[in-house]
Design a protein around this nucleic acid. Structure first.
Lengths: 158, 158
DNA sequence: CATTGTTGCCGAACTTAATTCAGCCAATAT
DNA sequence: ATATTGGCTGAATTAAGTTCGGCAACAATG
């Protein structure tokens, strides 16, 4: 039941509780109660407007591999996350320490960002993959058919 | 002005128009008008609930490089996008055709997905990077300080 | 087996926000 | 100088969010 609500809210967070209720077969207050619980338990992190990157001038998407000298929440990591062009930072197993997803206005701006990354103390080397075109991009789906109970206890308390 | 509204709505799409108005110095109907325009012009693609991946059982995040025999909207591309584990598909310049962002419950499920990808006609070879931990992950920001006018004309009409 | 407590749902009432509309002001163009 | 357009405000209306009491189902307990 919660999965159905989640799936609908991922697609359209502006749905009224009444419409949601009709869709999943519940009354408006019941849906309201469940959504409130999903929010408080952290399953729903927040509601957000999804913005077209090109509409705000972010035409270029690139994935940047970065080697750093340290591990964990290091100063260089903090420095990297300060750049507004950086959307994601993952530490990956394979061949590099960090994998960054970055968006810039153009190749020139990407070069500027790379220069700033290189200049960061602790950053050793980078390698970049520029995206030519994006065929699919969707937020985390809730349509997993999976064994219960879901690990809701893992959700953050904030 | 629209940038301010966008920035606020990316952070919290549940803000009332009155609160938004107070934040940017406009009345509620004025904000309403602007948001409606931003939605219709495609700058705001949609409102969505951001779900904690772990709360819905998606513990593992991986980036998968895929080589395919064809280019563009090929059947193998459609086949790949059918898998619910696949969140993003980009064609990248560098060394492979496609870069996939996928989420699964565990390594076993990832292996199953890779097996299905390998079995897809047109898919030549894959290489995977498993994310150990994610330090930053945020949606497209609207905080670009950039020359005007923004290329709103590029936004989709739907 | 009955009792008591808990959980989750519904319907109605109430409160708040979304939405519409008429009128106004400023900027631009004729 | 004047008409026209676009965007804003404030009030009124409509719709939604939110709270509450009561009920039914289930589980644990005496």
């Amino acid at each position: 039941m919660d999965r159905k609500i989640l799936g609908a809210l991922v697609e359209d967070a502006t749905l009224s509780y009444a419409d949601l209720g009709k869709r999943v077969g519940l009354s408006a207050p019941a849906v309201h109660e469940r959504v409130k619980r999903l929010k408080r338990s952290g399953v729903i992190r927040r509601m957000a407007a999804l913005v077209d990157p090109r509409a705000v001038g972010k035409t270029l998407l690139a994935f940047v591999h970065v080697d750093t000298t340290g591990w964990g929440k290091t100063p260089e990591l903090m420095a990297i996350s300060e750049h507004p062009e950086v959307e994601e930072i993952h530490s990956v197993a394979g061949d590099t320490c960090m994998l960054l997803k970055v968006r810039t206005t153009d190749t020139h701006a990407l070069e500027g960002l790379l220069a700033r990354l290189y200049a960061t103390p602790g950053v050793v080397a980078t390698r970049s993959y520029v995206a030519l075109s994006t065929y699919l991009e969707r937020p985390v789906q809730a349509d997993v058919t999976e064994v219960w109970p879901a690990p809701q206890a893992r959700a953050r308390s904030l």
